[in-house]
Amino acid sequence: MMRLLLAIIALAVVLAVPAFAGEFWTTLLTQIMIFALLALSADLLLGSAGLFSLCQASFFAVAAYTTAILQVRHGVGTLIAAPAGVLAGTLLALVFAFAVRTRGVYFILITLAFGYIVWGVAYRWASFTGGDNGVTNVPLPAIGPLRVTGTTQYYYVVLVVVLLCVWAYRILTASPFGLSLRGIKSSETRMRSLGYDIGRHLYMAFVLAGVFASIAGVLYVYHNRFINPVAGSFPVSVEAVLMAIIGGSGTILGPFIGAGIVLILRNWVSGFFHYYTGMLGIVFIVTVLWAPKGIMGLIARWKSGDRGEGV
C-alpha cells in the first residue's frame, strides 16, 4: 500500500516537472531518463546475468545514427526512422551477442573491442557518418499530424517510452527467464546441471539489452538532434555501467538514481563548482568501497534495520 502510494506520488511529481521546474530541468530530466535507460540495459547483463558489458554504447550509437541518417538525408518520417533505428541496433546486438561464449575478463575485453569497432567505423567512415562533424539538424519527431514541437512535449514522449520500457523490464526480470538469469549469475554450473541452456539464455539477455540500448539511442538522437562518434565511444559504455553501480545494480530504480547523480553533477554542479570531476571520482570510490550495492543497497540495508554495526 505504502509502495503504491509512493509510486503515485512519484508519478505525479514527474508529470508535473515541466510545469514548475522550467526548461533547463525538463531538458536535464529528459537526458537523465534516456541515459538511465541505457544504464538499465547495461544492468540487465550486469545485475541479472553478472556480465560486465562494455559495448552498450554501440547499440545506442548505431540506433541513433540510423534514425538520424534516415531522417536527415533521406527525409524518412519518424514512424519508419525510429523503429528502423531500434532494428539496426538489435541486428548488431544479434551479432555481438556471440560475446557470451566468453566469461569474466574475456567477456569484458571482447565487448570492449566490439565497442571500439563501432566507434572506429563511425569516426573513419566519414562519407557515410559525417566523421567528426557527425549528423546535424535532426528534426523533432513527428508522426503524421502529431508533432513534437518543444522540450516539454518531448519530455512526455520520453517519459512514456521509458516507463513502457521499465514495465517490460520488470516483467522480464520477474519471468522464469529473468529468474534463470539470476540463477546463472549465482552459479552457472548448478544451472547447467539442472538442465538449463546457459548459452541460449545469455545470448537472449544480451540481445534484449541491445534492444533497450537501441531504444535509448533513438530517444537520444531526437533529444540532442545531433550525433557524432562520441556517442558510441568507450566512456559512454563505461558510464552506463557506472551509473547502474552507483544507483544499485540489479534494481530498477538504481540506474535512474545513478544517471541522475552523474548527469546532475556534470551538467548542473559544474556550473558553480569547478572540481565537479573530482567529486564524480569521489562518488565512484565511495560507492565501490562502502556501498558496493549502490544507493539502493544502502536504502535496503537501512530499511532492514541493519545499521552496519553488526556482522
Binding site: 562533424n133 557527425g134 546535424t136 539538424n137 540532442n224 538532434r225 545531433f226 557524432n228 562520441v230
Partner: peptide, 8 residues
C-alpha cells in the same frame, strides 16, 4: 567537433 553540436 563540438562546433556543430553548439550550433544546433
Amino acid at each position: 567537433h563540438e562546433g556543430p553540436a553548439v550550433a544546433q
